[in-house]
Design a protein around this nucleic acid. Structure first.
Lengths: 206, 206, 206, 206
DNA sequence: AATGAATGAGCGTTCATTCAT
DNA sequence: TATGAATGAACGCTCATTCAT
């Protein structure tokens, strides 16, 4: 479903993108070297520059792709669920699963993209906002449906996003927990009921 | 209250540190130029290198100082409060206030230190862990005191830290909300009771 | 006589090598500046570094080239002569002639390469050893052929090499004698018969 | 016998000189760092500069001292012998012995001083000339005394010096032979009678 | 005499980007 | 489209030298 682009040029571009993901995630934006990306994509430096006007543009494109892919997965997962609460669960679970299967992606988005430079702040902010507002919209729906009490959903969106973010970042940087998805039940409970109500509503264990 | 021990060289070192904070926060680690730091500290490049062996070491020292200062503030604020719940409130409030008064510090710690390079991951991880475990310890105490139900306090520490982190990061990057401290009540409620119980327990406004 | 294999890049590399010889011999290794070499080879600094990984590697390559060239000349001259004694004469004469025509080369090999740094000692030692053992081999042959009495040919090789070395070095540093090759007859007599037998065997004058 | 100078200042100066010998011989002129010399002489950088106006002057002074010391030893050894031939033997023996006991000195004079830079060529030339002409003078005397046939004593002085030089240099760079002095008999024979007459006049073995 | 903090010119090296082929 | 040699601005770091104390 939908890989209709030019068989050669498009795949070349994708090769570069894939290689760039690898290299940027490995070395960070600043330390990554265009030559490395060229080598890793079995092209030449000129080849890279044919498909992308600059190192910066390449990184930006990568953020777009990676962020879009993740957003897509989460939205698709939510779309598959009927009721509000289930949607939230699905979103959280799919985010953890996607990252859990792709540490490189996680590192790029949550670590390397952050301090990469002023030039990337706008895109980073957009990404953060996209996720936060996805969550906020879901919370709004849930409030509208009467399954959640009214509250500042914008702030909650940001905070939730940050909470998940940090759990994943810790996993990226320290390798803990071994299986990222394993935090799902506890994290879900925490997001829903905070620490105060944590005990009551927990329906599962590790 | 006693800072008589730093006649000249120590103050020089501090000058450099201060200038470095400014420059690193403004330009990011990678784009920051040692010459700029020298100029900003009214020294020469050689002066900077007399006090710090390398740009990297300078940044590391800065992370230490900034992280320590923040941790100190928060811990001091907690120490001033008697009961567990109040300690938590004080911690949250002092973190928001400290960052709110010092956007430069916030940018350094939450943005620029992140993608700065593999060399800094260890220190960054340590910082994250220090905060997360400070929170976890507090939660443990609260659980022991019976004011909070038992739960995975480690995970909660990480998630809380992430939530606050993200709210501050958003403020650093977008300027919203105008007054960082204004999120305190809502954020507190969210951390305590999650989104499900959010409506009920709110006891205050802006 | 066949140098068709070096279309562009190879000639560039050679340009750099030539310029480096000039600059290193003029300024010495330590004082030579890569920018100067770049300028002298009508390239850019990056161009130099494209062909050689470092200043050090460039100097090493130069030692190889210069040493190889000299050794080649001497060996070729020896090969052209039939009997042992004539070979020796030819070797001495060709060494003096080659250096005499190329003071730059002489300076590089005999002066600048010497105190250039520990990194170059190995290569220098190799060069010295190559010459000394070339001489020693020749002496061995002459002994085997019965035209010279048996003696410690290794030491003689070293000593001979040093004697010639010093005569050339003196010429490099002081300009004396005007024509380096003019020392040939006296030097030859000296190497053959020492100072004691000097008077008898001398068949020529200055 | 003669250490009459100012007890403190003069010894300080000597300390610096000694340390400099060590450091220059270890690192070479270019790589040697004034701070190291200061540390090695248990002084401060300022202390070094109090006694010597510049790094260059320090090295020059060292060459003077080292060269003078060596020349002194050799001359003294010659003065102790009555007849010409014995003087020559004594000179060679004392040179080998002095270097053999002091590899640092040998390295400074024969290796590090050579490529150290144009600034040192004059002094180096002087040193070489001093030795060469010492030898030449001795040869002249021997010729005058009728124990050696007339020949180009200047050239012989240079060549002899170079031969000894090279033997010592090889020992400095490669460690061979184990005992430098052991080459004395063979080297003496070589210098006196060359390779042609070598067999006859040898009166000893290794 | 001695100290050591400070200076700043200088240099090796890197690497994004360009462009002739 | 692709290649890779070439460019040159930029930067981290070193270290001889100075000088206030």
């Amino acid at each position: 479903m939908g890989r209709a682009a030019t068989p050669k040029s498009e795949s070349r571009r994708q090769q570069v993108l894939d290689a760039a993901l690898e290299v940027f995630a490995r070395d960070g934006y600043g330390n990554a070297v265009v030559d490395d990306i060229a080598r890793a994509s079995a092209t030449s430096k000129g080849g890279v520059y044919f498909h992308f006007p600059s190192k910066q543009a390449l990184f930006l494109a990568l953020m777009d792709e990676a962020g879009g892919l993740l957003l897509d997965r989460v939205e698709r997962a939510m779309a598959d669920e009927p009721n509000p609460l289930a949607k939230g669960d699905a979103a959280l679970k799919s985010a953890l699963t996607t990252f859990g299967k792709n540490r490189t992606l996680a590192r790029l988005l949550l670590v390397e993209a952050v301090g990469a430079g002023r030039e990337f702040n706008a895109k980073l902010t957009d990404l953060h906002a996209a996720f936060a507002s996805l969550i906020a919209r879901y919370l709004d729906d849930a409030v509208a449906a009467g399954v959640l009490p009214p509250h500042d959903t914008t702030l909650a969106g940001v905070a939730w996003f940050g909470a998940v973010n940090q759990v994943v970042t810790r996993w990226v940087l320290t390798g803990e927990p071994k299986k990222l998805e394993s935090v799902y039940p506890e994290l879900r409970a925490l997001l829903m009921h905070g620490v105060a109500g944590a005990g009551v509503h927990r329906e599962d264990a590790r």
